[in-house]
Design a protein around this nucleic acid. Structure first.
Lengths: 142, 142
DNA sequence: CTACGGGTTCGAGTGCACTCTCAGTCAAGG
DNA sequence: CCTTGACTGAGAGTGCACTCGAACCCGTAG
């Protein structure tokens, strides 16, 4: 399988695959006769795992660490386990925070409910009022 | 209250407060005699709300939109409500995804359990093996 | 008087994770 | 033979959300 197909099947772009290889997240792929990367389907499971880590917000540096531990063989399993556990705990905390914020958000939305006008909730103080010293000069976020 | 105290009380840095004002997330603050920003405590509730939106991953552009709607008065409440609802739904979806991923992660961690060696789970295929064509030249992520 | 601890503006720099451009190579199809 | 489309490496560019630096001003305590 070459990079184009792997891109299609893995959901990463060919660019990203090369990028991952460059930084060491993906193994250096064997090249065929004309130096094109030739992948084994097994790589898909590894990519799926990486995507999972990424989806849960693990920074690439940590994924790299994990990949490196892997490459050092089974003796690093306890370390890998610890790494994943730490990550899981962080994600769990993050989920809890999100849920707490969701609750507040819902309360606020109810505040806007029906046709009732802004029942003094939450952001009631100091609205962002008209502020245009001169035309549209407010530096917009790049 | 001037910017330093507001920074302390709001958890934003003075830099960030100025930045937010510049892009329009915070109202243009009144200046005292020597053109220093002078805040009313009411601003704290607004900042707290912004922090909540941020904590749930709302991009600044959308917060700006919300702030702008606010500044246009009560007639925009339905729109604001819709905005928040869309956001809430996105966050809810995100939380669900995270939980699904957490489950898989836990399964994987159990795979490393006790002293049992890597019971062919998940990322079993194609490990990132030794790959160092020549020394430490693998471009690290910037 | 002078040092200090704030404040001011503006613009440039940072870190992350891609994403794209460039200039070129190569194999297969018409 | 020529085009097409996919590939190559290296490096520059992007978008986000800050974060910092430079050069300056200002009021109060010692």
């Amino acid at each position: 399988m070459k990079i184009g197909e792997l891109a299609r099947r893995s959901g990463l772009s060919a660019h990203t695959i090369r990028y991952y290889e460059r930084i060491g997240l993906l193994p250096y792929a064997d090249r065929d006769g004309s130096s094109q990367r030739d992948y084994d389907t097994g790589i898909l499971t590894w990519i799926a795992f990486l995507r999972r880590l990424k989806a849960t917000g693990m920074p690439i540096r940590e994924m790299l660490l994990y990949a490196e531990l892997r490459s050092r063989g089974p003796s690093t399993e306890p370390e890998r386990r610890t790494l994943l556990e730490r990550h899981r705990d962080r994600v769990g905390q993050h989920v809890a925070d999100l849920q707490a914020n969701l609750l507040v958000l819902d309360t606020k939305i109810s505040g806007y409910a029906g046709s009732a006008q802004g029942t003094d909730h939450d952001d009631a103080g100091t609205p962002t009022r008209e502020r245009k010293p001169a035309g549209k000069r407010a530096a917009r976020p790049r």
